[in-house]
Design a protein around this nucleic acid. Structure first.
Lengths: 141, 141
DNA sequence: TTATGTGTAACCGAAATGGATACAGATAAT
DNA sequence: ATTATCTGTATCCATTTCGGTTACACATAA
């Protein structure tokens, strides 16, 4: 998969760590080690999903729209991965073949089940959980 | 994701439907609606994973190496998706940042949990299940 | 009024994806 | 033995995706 989910999660965790202080795309980009445009593109998606807000102008930046404890990895997944399916079907199997005619319909159901299992697990982790894990690691070190 | 998992599953289901009769890559390609080389590439991977065997020469083709009831979608996933991870991390976050320094380690664990949930669900379906579903659909129609 | 920061468009190179051709080698059929 | 068949693999190609880069209009804070 692409790294957008990981980066989006990084962004949100970073914002949680900011404690209400707006973070510029440049600042976040430095933490992620990428470029500000990439961050802004993801922030746009996160904002559209209602997970973040943006403060324009000097001293502005991105903020969490909700408490970190109420943002789950599933929320991030849904905000970023527009198609929301790990598996892809192959185009247009042969309708003349008894297998080709039905494989998509049959496989789609099983893929959905797997997808649901994945999403259910993602729902169990919040950005606050990640922030806490990170705080723990920084405490020890 | 790419369509290789779907095509590999299609191949195996097709072979299950053949009832022990070898299928050429050309025949399978016609069912999938793709080219024989793509099928042979996947068959090579499936063979390496011990899921299929190949009969060379005239009248030859691919065969299931085990009963379809003993080949799960997880087996296919493992055979085809070499990296076996839905999620990717972003390269080299900033080690100077308290978040960047730890995000990968923390996120990796959560991704693994989700990956495991996905795989556990895949394990519940066998190629025989798919073949049965397809048979049912062909019966009704 | 000026500096700051977002949102978005445009362009780029690298990598991945699947399609197409080609051919050596193994095997079955005759 | 000879021929036809089929695999396994290499090579090349066009298309798409991915993330990086530059640029700039617009909104807002200082």
């Amino acid at each position: 998969m692409n790294t957008r989910f990981a980066v989006a999660t990084h962004i949100l965790t970073f914002l949680a760590y900011q404690g209400g202080q707006p973070a510029t795309s440049e600042l976040i980009a430095a933490s992620v080690n990428t470029n500000p445009t990439f961050i802004r593109r993801l922030l746009t998606q996160l904002a559209k999903a209602g997970l973040t807000t943006s403060q324009l102008g000097a001293g502005g930046g991105a903020l969490l729209a909700h408490p970190a404890s109420r943002i789950s990895l599933l929320d991030v997944y849904r905000a970023i991965d527009e198609q929301q399916q790990v598996f892809a079907l192959h185009d247009a199997p042969n309708p003349q073949c008894p297998v080709g005619r039905n494989i998509d319909a049959v496989l789609k159901g099983r893929m959905l089940e797997a997808e649901r299992a994945l999403q259910a697990q993602l729902a169990k982790t919040s950005i606050a959980d990640l922030a806490a894990d990170i705080a723990e690691r920084n405490k020890v070190a």
